[in-house]
Design a protein around this nucleic acid. Structure first.
Lengths: 250, 250
DNA sequence: TGAGGGCATTGATTTGCATCAATGCCGGGG
DNA sequence: CCCCGGCATTGATGCAAATCAATGCCCTCA
């Protein structure tokens, strides 16, 4: 099966990264570069152990990786594709709390149950760790623990930023912030381009920003009409960054 | 100075808790019970070291403990009172991302800058740790690191729940969920009562739930009119829990 | 090739909450 | 005692975004 590659756009040459477990940036045969990985320096014996407890897995779009309130049996590192994380209300209302891109960890909260559901938006490749093995591996490595903790802290910061967005920003500000944020995230994993890939549906974007599909669509077309963006297949080209930053600034 | 005590309400006898640093539940002279503290078992020598790097502090209402994007120099544990944590937009819009009650930690994200501003809502007592000392103390104690990490994971879960609330719930659902949540939190620190203390202003509640003061006020009076709650000075008495849970359930 | 389903766009209309505005309550200070 | 300022409540009105509804554009598949 061919894996959809969100990195391919305008970055074909440099996009050949396939770190299997996302935990190292050096010493690992499989790893090229992963700037935002959890641990920047693991030694060879540790890496071998890591390889033993990790398991690469590829799944097609719309696959559920784990479900909210299920027993948290695995920790995942996304290596290819996009995953949506969401919570649902009994009546079907949905809030996407984040999109995981290559390099992101899932289930790191280290609680006994998952707090969200994780679904592949595109075809996805992940590296799976059995939780007990992962915990055992991590437990006597303070530098790794520290790093994981910082990672969690960063996640929390992002969540708080998203609360500000959901609670206090207008539709246009939400869209602008979302586009700029996606561009920044793709840039970090190697896709530097004014064209931001948007592999998720309008419904996903709406459920992430606390809007409806119609409002997302209208706001995007308005931004396009005003020459702030250009809507292209599966993405958006950012034209007037100043205009967007004006709306989306933190 | 007399410290305002959110625990006093209907719990006068059991409310004599004054854990100075919030990091232990046994072996510590100063500690009575702190069920949700970070570490349930620290040994005597470790506690002495902890005491050396901690510093009790009492501040009046409206004091700023730290400001968004300031260098994170301290970690705090709240021992008395209520603290609001918020982010602001340049034009003054504000989103409160959480209220810290006794036992809660502030600045645990372990990033070099604070992501939010922390202000005392009531008079507040905190235990302050210098960050470098705290990090040094914690660094070679894997069990503590683990516990801190779990703590951060829990925070993240709460943040995600709040995103669902901000993005997808109606005004009435937001208020109901808020009241039930506050009751649960006070119950955990010893105040078991149908009367939930609300030491923060309507503006604070509005900024927490992504509403306006007027909507908060109207929704509360509607709930009161419908006999779901009874509004009392500095708080709300919950009358019809079923009705509230119907609206506020996760 | 054309029926049918999924998704996005666009328009018309409604509505939940915000905004604007007035009043009331209370506590502190002269 | 009364004035004042801060906060909460309540009512009238406005508006941004939701809802309802129609259309179009791919796809896929028979």
């Amino acid at each position: 099966m061919r894996i959809a590659d969100p990195l391919q756009d305008s970055c074909a040459g440099a996009a050949t990264r396939d770190c299997r477990h996302g935990l190292a940036t050096n010493g690992c045969e499989d790893c090229k570069v992963r700037l935002f990985s959890v641990c920047a320096a693991l030694e060879a014996p540790e890496l071998e152990e890591l390889d033993r407890i990790s398991q690469a897995r590829e799944v097609p779009a719309r696959t559920t990786l784990f479900e909210q309130s299920a027993l948290a049996g695995s920790v995942f590192n996304v290596t290819e594709g996009v995953v949506r994380l969401y919570k649902s209300l009994p009546d079907g209302r949905r809030q996407i709390v984040g999109f995981a891109l290559p390099g992101d960890f899932l289930g790191l909260a280290l609680q006994d149950r998952y707090g969200v559901t994780a679904e592949a938006v595109t075809a996805v490749a992940v590296c799976r760790f059995a939780r007990p093995a992962f915990l055992a591996y991590v437990d006597d490595k303070p530098h790794l623990l520290r790093r994981l903790h910082e990672f969690a802290g960063h996640e929390l910061s992002l969540a708080q930023e998203q609360m500000l967005l959901l609670g206090r920003r207008t539709a246009e500000e939400k869209i602008a912030a979302f586009l700029l944020n996606m561009q920044a995230r793709y840039a970090r994993i190697g896709t530097v381009s004014v064209t931001v890939p948007l592999p998720m549906s309008r419904q996903d974007i709406a459920d992430y920003l606390g809007l409806t599909i119609e409002t997302v669509s209208r706001t995007l077309t308005r931004l396009a009409r005003e020459k702030a963006v250009l809507i292209v297949p599966d993405g958006v080209r950012l034209l007037d960054l100043e205009r967007l930053k004006l709306a989306g600034a933190s």
